[in-house]
């Protein structure tokens, strides 16, 4: 099987590999969102109280936030799918529309992390004021920090793509 050294790939070959990878990422994003929503529902069903048992405060708070979390997961996934679809179908990855989609994705991740962390924060506050004695986790801090880091990372990539779009524009004008 003839292979091409990574460093000797032409621009066209780079574009071809990029399109293939973008298609795979799109499919995996859809699978990930579906799996996440099924897992969230399964977690709620398994945590549901049995006969004669009372549900924990965290269970009710999570149940209230479940639709919001599902919407947030769909929005983030939508941004990711649209981004990689545009990368896959365009002539060049350096377009201002892609930089804008990256910025949108970073904002969606920041917002989504707040929505996913909110149940744990609300549960913590309820526990602090009512002293229900339920065990608390540090999931809120982990989700917020992770979401903040990813959001800032995609924001940086959006600026880099804007720079790349400027470079592409200059290259096209020169041609």
């Amino acid at each position: 099987m003839k292979t091409v050294d990574v460093n000797e790939r032409t621009l066209e070959q780079e574009k071809k590999y990029l399109k293939q990878t973008s298609a795979i990422v799109r499919i995996e994003s859809v699978c990930f969102t579906l799996a996440l929503m099924m897992l969230m529902v399964q977690e709620m069903v398994s945590a549901a109280p049995g006969d004669g048992e009372s549900a924990s405060v965290l269970f009710w708070i999570k149940l209230i936030f479940l639709p919001l979390q599902a919407v947030a997961a769909i929005i983030v996934s939508n941004f990711a799918i649209a981004l990689f679809k545009e990368i896959e179908t365009g002539d060049t990855p350096f377009r201002y529309s892609i930089a804008d989609k990256l910025k949108g994705l970073s904002n969606a991740i920041l917002g989504g992390s707040i929505i996913f962390a909110a149940p744990y924060l609300v549960s913590y506050l309820v526990n602090a004021f009512t002293e229900t004695g339920e065990p608390q986790t540090n999931a809120c801090a982990v989700i917020m920090l992770g979401g903040l880091f990813l959001g800032v990372l995609f924001k940086a990539l959006s600026y880099i793509f804007s720079y790349g779009s400027k470079l592409q524009q200059e290259s096209d004008e020169t041609l």
Partner: peptide
């Protein structure tokens, strides 16, 4: 995917 885009950017 981003590494491939960066390689394309290097050529550009």
């Amino acid at each position: 995917a981003f590494s491939l885009i960066f390689k394309y950017g290097c050529k550009l």
